[in-house]
């Protein structure tokens, strides 16, 4: 997208809280969580070619780290740090956790790496339940500290009114998430266009050639795991702020489970592997659809018994993956340029 095209998009996103009801804003925030996580995974899997099913685990690492760092000293372990510092700290801890996985990533490839990374999800499931002093355990969970920026709380506290609309917790979190997503997007776009991005693609396409050009393959893999996990960790922090609770999963299917890892892979594939913009679009589809269907469920009247919005959207994004793989391996990100190319061909 050209730079000018961003202006209207930005204005609309900034004005939405003045018009949308809270449930719609919540839905939008959830899509932004997905977008941040998906950008991280598209760098790892799309740009650097490293398959990972561990994204859900790194979400949990980020979520727990924030809650512990910012949490009050009490029943659970809490350091009571400033929430902004805690957020940065949680991202850094997630990056380190990703880097700790690098020795494994350097040894196995492709689907084997995918399976090896899956073990982390089960490790997370176990630790989430066992380390109750950190996570609060599966039965009660644990309240995260309210996010504050230089003393300004992202909650309903205090009166703030803009254009006759009260800017309460939901609206404030919208702006916080929007800023985080914009930063995450901008950093990723910059990185893929420069030296590190070229090194990632070289490692993906031919490790021997990458090494012959002076790329330290092992270090490059470690760095991309760190970056991707940092993104997942940030998405994890956003997740606890969104739910306003840290609650470890009871089974491998949950907020930080296998299904989440797969949902992120789905976003990345639907959007187009390696495309930062595509990852955002993929997140709108995969995380947005169940949210929007839920909001419309009573109006639609489709959902009875076991047919839930989540179930229906799983089918939709499952079908979307099949369609993308069959007809447009470049994903939704490649549709735009293709249409433009077609139009140009038809004109001449």
């Amino acid at each position: 997208m050209s730079r000018l095209a961003w202006i209207p998009v930005g204005i609309v996103l900034l004005l939405l809280p003045l018009y949308l009801e809270a449930p719609w804003l919540k839905a939008g925030q959830y899509m932004m969580i997905g977008a941040v996580g998906a950008i991280g995974l598209t760098l790892l899997t799309g740009q650097a070619g490293q398959l990972s099913l561990a994204h859900g685990f790194f979400l949990l690492v980020g979520a727990t780290s924030y809650t512990v760092l910012a949490g009050p000293k009490g029943d659970h372990l809490g350091l009571g740090l400033d929430p902004l510092i805690s957020l940065v700290g949680a991202v850094a801890i997630s990056a380190l956790a990703g880097m700790a996985f690098a020795p494994v990533a350097g040894r196995v490839r492709g689907i084997y790496l995918g399976v090896a990374s899956l073990s982390l999800v089960f490790l997370g499931l176990y630790l989430g339940q066992a380390a109750e002093s950190l996570t609060g355990g599966t039965s009660t969970g644990r309240d995260p500290a309210t996010f504050k920026l230089f003393g300004f709380p992202f909650s309903n506290e205090g009166d703030l009114v803009v254009a006759g609309v009260p800017i309460r917790g939901t609206e404030r979190i919208w702006y916080l998430f929007l800023a985080l997503l914009a930063l995450a997007y901008w950093l990723a776009r910059g990185a893929v266009r420069t030296r590190i991005g070229r090194a990632w693609r070289a490692v993906r396409d031919n490790e021997a050639a990458a090494a012959a050009m002076g790329v330290d393959v092992r270090r490059t893999k470690a760095s991309v795991f760190a970056v991707s996990s940092a993104y997942a960790g940030l998405a994890g922090v956003m997740t606890v702020l969104w739910f306003d609770i840290l609650k470890p999963d009871e089974s491998e299917y949950g907020t930080y489970g296998v299904n989440t890892s797969i949902a992120f892979l789905a976003m990345v594939i639907i959007g187009g592997l390696g495309s930062v913009g595509g990852a955002v679009i993929g997140a709108l589809v995969v995380f947005g659809l169940p949210q929007v269907l839920t909001l419309y469920s009573t109006d639609l009247g489709w959902f009875t018994g076991s047919v839930t919005p989540v179930l229906v959207s799983s089918f939709v994004y499952g079908a979307a993956i099949v369609l993308v793989v069959l007809f447009e391996p470049g994903g939704l990100a490649a549709v735009g340029p293709r249409v433009k190319h077609r139009i140009r061909e038809l004109r001449s």
């Binding site: 910059g190 266009r193 030296r195 590190i196 090194a199 050009m213 760095s223």
Partner: peptide, 18 residues
């Protein structure tokens, strides 16, 4: 440009921050 890898510097943050 990949050939310039060893002659240049900068990782994710340096590239991301332009």
């Amino acid at each position: 440009l990949l050939g310039r890898h060893a002659l240049t510097r900068g990782g994710f943050l340096a590239g991301g921050l332009r």
